[in-house]
Amino acid sequence: MANEFLNNINEFNLKEKYLSTNPEDSENPVFIKSEEYVNKDAAVQEKSSHEKSAIAVSTTNLSVWFNDKPGIENVNINIKKDSVTAIIGPSGCGKSTFLRALNFMHDLTPNAVVTGEINILGKDITEYNSIDIRKKVGMVFQKPNPFPTMSIYDNVISGLKLNWGHKKGLYDEIVETSLVQSGLWNEVKDRLKISAYSLSGGQQQRLCIARTLAVKPEIILMDEPTSALDPISTAGIEASIHDLKKIYTFIIVTHNMQQAARVSDFTAYFYLGKLIEHSKTSTVFTKPKEKLTEEYITGKFG
């Protein structure tokens, strides 16, 4: 039931977002909530469609070194836009390390050095500063981490409030949209002003997703987003991903094979810091090219 609801709601919102690229739809007044908000989207969409590449992330010989030991080594990968790519592999193989390289998150690790090339949305990553890149490439973490001093409402708009100085008038609408997209709206719409910490773990995680969506990134990185959650919350989040992938590029690290099979279009298998295989999820799970991949998927190790 929850999923059904989710699907309906998400369709509603997806249209809103599409609207910006398809001006012919705009006669439908329901979806025009605020010109400014829509225009910003339009600008973003236009710019990236202008570049006309279907590749969201592309890396060349990407390595990350911790104290001169490689966490990942020479990773070459092209990740398709508006799709879901699952990253799988045994613990310690470098999945998080790969993900964190894509939005300069290694900045926070004092001894990490990133080498190689990363291309994000058609531009070399070094052309962005660390703030811009993170606006384009959002991230959801394994453990839910809402801001403890803020209400649910403030959590959702935190990325906007602390950054662009959006007009206050738009906040209500953005909060609603984002919470609907992450499937949390129904549960919290009457208590938006209470502390985010009073939510359950699964709700907190969906709040974190809403918070990320509110910034309207183009790529969303998720590092084991459901590993701390119950099956129902997991299903909710997977449903959101499924619906949102038409407009967002998702890269999801997961230890759960079924999840990878369920939600992803492409799957990349990492082993000991190297990218072993990357292709359509159906291919990876049915007839993997590499022996290592097969062993992992069939549960021989890992």
């Binding site: 104290n67 001169d68 490689p70 001894n111 070094t126 500063n129 660390s130 703030i131 890149i133």
Partner: peptide
């Protein structure tokens, strides 16, 4: 960022993040 001194990462192109001017 620490400049790498080790064996492997020496001659590779290091990706350095650009910090925003306000952060600096």
């Amino acid at each position: 960022m620490k400049k790498s001194t080790g064996n492997n990462s020496e001659n590779l192109k290091v990706i350095k993040s650009k910090n925003h001017i306000s952060d600096i």
